[in-house]
Design a binder for these strands. Structure first.
Lengths: 213, 213
DNA sequence: CCAGGAAATGAACATTGTTCAAGAACGATT
DNA sequence: AATCGTTCTTGAACAATGTTCATTTCCTGG
């Protein structure tokens, strides 16, 4: 007996992830997958409806792993007794940056794919995974005492994490040499530092007061 | 006589922009362009080396227009005597959001394309246009008195603008209904508020001091 | 009016995603 | 064991696409 249906799907996804990492979305070809998996091209379409579904499944795995990495990093700090909010957020950001650097080809593909499904209906497993990341950040912010209620803390978490995300992706627009990595990290340090300082000084919702005049 | 070579290129780019806006990158097809422009498919390749070059040219136009829009918004505020940094940054962000909303299909394509050229050599016209956007923000930050030297102000500008960019693109990952637009704007207001407050209280480079110990 | 170069053409090729009719493998039932 | 029905696998076939290039068409200077 060869491989289970489940096992073969795993194998296909592993191959697909490698292909995406090497050459981005346009390198994910049905025939290449089939050849490397030792099955026929038709069998690929038996396991997955189309290549988009393969791509989606790969992205899910990546997001899942990213969440696990973030949680592990938080657990490490917990074990070391680090409670400083700024340190913990920076650790999360570091995990994120490392993850993106470890997947130079497939991470852009995650983002590009993400946008393509804007037409689909309501929230799905994708959003659930992204929300999990936001929740980790929100948990860290809860430790700091910024006088935020749950809603505002959640908003702050999404804002902060989206900003980190923007810095990372903008940074990798240009050539990804080491100078770029340094620039990204400088930006992240600046963002987190300013953000925490701003929250401490109650700048979070000052605009709401001036706006509701 | 029909159209000039230059004029025909313009026509092709206008068609290409419309196609990208409707269906994203995968909707940019040589035969569709040729048909709509009233020329043959070969002629498209006479005007542009390949579809990537068409896509790039469209993106350049978009970035150019975005820069012009931002400058116009700044000029408007100048005329009204608005000097408040927070207001001006928010106006820039509003221009950015409006622009993205006005190009729901092609803006994702700009970003996706942007990443694909990570392998190419040094900086090019693309980076120049992005730098122009950063410079506008840096100019606004210069008005506020945060005690920043030129380098740090430039870093802060890139950080702030990349963050806005991240919020906008993250926001449009999910369905782009009006609730999403509201969420985006809440995040931007929070970010800008916290950022300015953080700069005011010198939180910008606290980390640098603790790090260089 | 003509020669020569420039531009336009679209048929042709290679590569892709996807389908599907035909066959193979397998399990249950008699 | 034999038979049947179901399910899975296969790979040839189709349509769509990017790109090329020999041929044709067009224009312009003499």
């Amino acid at each position: 007996m060869a491989l289970d249906k489940e096992e073969m799907s795993e194998k296909v996804l592993a191959i697909a992830e490698a292909l995406l990492n090497e050459g981005g979305a346009e390198n994910l070809k049905a025939r290449t997958i089939a050849e490397q998996a030792g099955i026929s091209v038709g069998s690929v379409y038996n396991l997955f409806a189309d290549l988009d579904e393969v791509h989606r499944a790969v992205n899910m795995r990546l997001l899942d792993r990213l969440g696990a990495t973030g949680l592990a990093a938080m657990a490490d700090l917990e074990r070391q007794g680090v409670t400083d909010v700024q340190h913990r957020i920076l650790a999360m950001a570091a995990a994120y940056v490392s993850f993106v650097e470890a997947h130079p080809g497939s991470w852009p593909a995650v983002l590009a794919f993400n946008r393509r499904r804007a037409t689909r209906p309501g929230p799905d497993a994708y959003d659930a995974l992204l929300d999990a990341l936001f929740d980790i950040v929100a948990g860290v912010l809860k430790a700091g005492d910024f006088g935020l209620d749950d809603d505002r803390r959640a908003l702050a978490a999404r804002t902060l994490w989206s900003s980190v995300h923007g810095i990372v992706t903008s940074g990798y627009v240009a050539n990804s040499n080491s100078r770029q990595a340094e620039e990204i990290w400088h930006q992240i340090e600046l963002l987190v530092g300013v953000f925490v300082k701003g929250l401490e000084h109650g700048g979070a919702f000052a605009h709401a007061e001036t706006k509701s005049d």
